[in-house]
Structures are given as C-alpha cells and as structure tokens.
Design a protein around this nucleic acid. Structure first.
Lengths: 211, 211
DNA sequence: TGCTAATGAGGGGTAAATAG
DNA sequence: CTATTTACCCCTCATTAGCA
C-alpha cells in the first residue's frame, strides 16, 4: 500500500485494517500506523485484488528476450478467499525464465552451492535465499529421481537404440521452462518442448519403485 | 470482506470505504455496516457463512452453490444449503463484442497467455481473470475440435492424393498438439487421452467454422 | 436452439512444507 | 540434507446450462 514493492514469499509484511498490506520497512517507518489492529505474518496468506503495480526496475529495455514469450510477470495471481480453517500456503513464487536460467547454470556448476553462492544467486536473481535453497533441494531431488528412472527405463529398452525422443509430457510449462533453443512455437508456445530431452522415460509422478 | 463468498458475475455488491467489498446479503444483514465505515466488521466472521470453502481438491472453491435442481432461480440464498443439491449456476457472463475482439486478438498472438498477459487482459476488458482463463481454455478447445474436424474432412475428400500425410489448413501445423498423431507408446501408460482421440467419430457437437 | 460460459474430474510440474 | 507429501497453478476433455 505504500511503496508498491513486490513482496517475495516469506517476506514479512503487516496487515492493517484488514486489508492494507504494508511491507516491514514501511511499517517500521510509519509510526502513525503502529497501533490498533495489525497482524504480522510471515508469508502472506492473502493477496487478492488485482494489483497493477509495475516494477519499474528489473527490466532492461534492451530485451534480448531469448525464449519466446513474455516474461516479467510480476504480480501474483488473484485468488481470494483465505480460509482460516485449512492450511493455506502462501502463493507459490513463480520463477521466471530468466531466473531459471541462472539457477540452472549454477546448478550445472555446483548442485550443492554454499551459502555464499546462494547469497550471490539471491542477489542476482532477486529471489529470496530460502527460495533458492528450496529450489536446489527440489532440483537435486528431481535429478535423483530422473536418474533412477532413466536407469530403469534404459534397461528395459536395452535392445533398442538410444531413446531419441521421449514422451512429450503434457503439463504446462509455458512461460518459464525451456531455455534457449526451441525457436519453434506453434501457436501455443512451447509446451512440448524438450526440457530433459536426453532422459528416457519420464516418470509418472508416482513411481514407487519400492518393492 | 465478510463471508468471503466468491461473487459471480452480475451479482450485486456494495463497496464501502473505497475498498471493502461486501455482498448484498451481508450488507443487508449488517446494520452496523450500513452507515459509514465498516471498520468494525473486522472479525469478518470468516466463512462461517459460506459453506463452500472447503474443497479438499485443488479446484478453486468456486461457489458451487447448490440447491435443488431446476426450477429454482430464486435470489441467491447463500448459506443454508447444506441440504443440497442444487446446481444452479450463476448467470453467465456475456462477453461483449468489444471484449471479444480484444480476446481474439490476444488469442491470435498467444493462445496460452501467461498470467501476466491474462492480468493485462483482465484489466483491459474489465473481465475477471478467471473468466478470461476459461475463455482461453474454451477457445483452445474449440480450435482443437475444428482442426481435428477439418483434418478428418480433408482426409475423406483427399485420400487419393497423399495417403500418408495430410495437411489441414495452412500447411504447417502442430504435430505437437495433435493428440491423435502423437505416437505415445510408452509402456506404462495410463492416459486417458487416448481413448477416443483418433476415431472418426463425427462431432456430436456443433462446430461452426466461423472466424 | 446453437454457441459458448462454467464446471468438474483427471493429470502434470513443481515450490513449499514436513519428517527423518 | 534427503525423502516424502502438500498445495497451488494450469491444462485438457467432457458436460452442463444460460442467453441471445
């Protein structure tokens, strides 16, 4: 409500009058506000209302715009109704193509970055440290999963030659997946792009290889 | 602000203090509100009223307001419907010519807009984000349907020429979205998409190829 | 009535949360 | 940190139902 800052997940903010969201800095800087009802929360639970806040910075006019699609998408979705009863989780931060690229590159170099590196990445991408940490964790996890699976799959198809192409996967991945390459856009974007192209057999999520 | 009900298009609501939205029922039921500020409302009674919040699934808790089937059409009674059953679907938003034009243009550019784009469109057209999302979904669906159909038709009339390949409209074409042609064949399958995908079943639905 | 909003089930990817 | 689970977001496909 004051500076229009885009809060990232996990950041503290204050809610005043039930519907005014103020970032910690502004809250601390505004003595006038400091009384009455306010709740400090550490990961906003509700942000509704469509905000058209523009983040003037973080945008190079140059726009090399690699991958198709537009990027930047600052605000979060609209989604009202926070039910108190159930455990709602704050909005999921969506990692933009650019950031993703940075992270991927970093991951390729060191899958288990030290705190320093993480710090650097945080700064570079503008993402919260925690987010970055989690990203690496999930990424490692994913890799492990894939590795296992590909091993399994490979065994099965041993007599065929290398799996050239894997199942397309129908999820959504527009706007943020796929790094460089794939100049091809049918009218829908990239959807069935390559992503992990080298790995055979994508695993259905619930693989349960356990005996 | 009071019951957290998801308003549907056309429903009346009251705006208090420039930024508090209250549904008609709550407005009428809350004498304290009727004059001036409703700062006091605060407690918000949280959804004790709106029943349809719990949705264990991932779908957004749209107000699936229920009442007995048909013949209903009373005013929206919210609450009280635990007895259930209704399927009353709120009024359908009618998208006006102007808005439609905007959407079509956007669609032509990117059939699968990112959230950011949707947001922009929402603002530009004044439509709800959700409405826009749905519109795109339906539109995509329609396009797919038509494409499939034209392909079939083409095949019928042209099976003298190239028996192997057909190029519906415009020449270049997906091969990526065409569900029928994707050679899925990976073993573990379980996708429902295959079921009727390729069958020459005549469209049960109307198609209408108008632009 | 036909076209098309709106629903709802089913599924994928993955950020975040939790258990160990 | 790893492993597992949740929850959120988005998509398709089939259906239902509102309105011009």
């Amino acid at each position: 409500m004051v500076c229009n800052k885009q809060l990232s997940t996990g950041e503290e903010l204050y809610i005043i009058d039930e519907n005014k969201f103020v970032c910690k800095e502004d809250y601390l800087n505004s003595p006038s506000v400091k009384e009455g009802s306010l709740n400090s929360v550490s990961s906003c639970t509700d942000r509704s209302l469509s905000p058209d806040l523009q983040d003037p910075l973080q945008d190079d006019p140059k726009e090399t715009d690699n991958s198709t699609s537009s990027d930047k998408e600052t605000t979060n979705n609209e989604n009202e109704e926070q039910n108190s009863g159930t455990k709602r989780r704050g909005p999921r931060t969506t990692i933009k193509a650019k950031q993703l690229e940075t992270l991927k590159a970093a991951f390729a170099a060191t899958p288990k970055p030290t705190r320093h590196i993480r710090e650097q990445l945080a700064q570079e991408t503008g993402l919260n440290m925690r987010v970055i940490q989690v990203w690496f964790q999930n990424r490692r996890s994913k890799e492990r999963r894939m590795k296992q699976l590909s091993a399994l799959g490979a065994r099965r198809h041993a007599f065929f030659r290398s799996p050239r192409r894997m199942r397309p996967l129908g999820g959504r991945l527009d706007e943020s997946e796929m790094l460089g390459s794939t100049p091809y856009t049918y009218y829908g974007g990239k959807q069935r792009s390559v992503k992990f192209s080298l790995l055979p057999v994508p695993a259905p999520r619930s693989l349960e290889c356990s005996p």
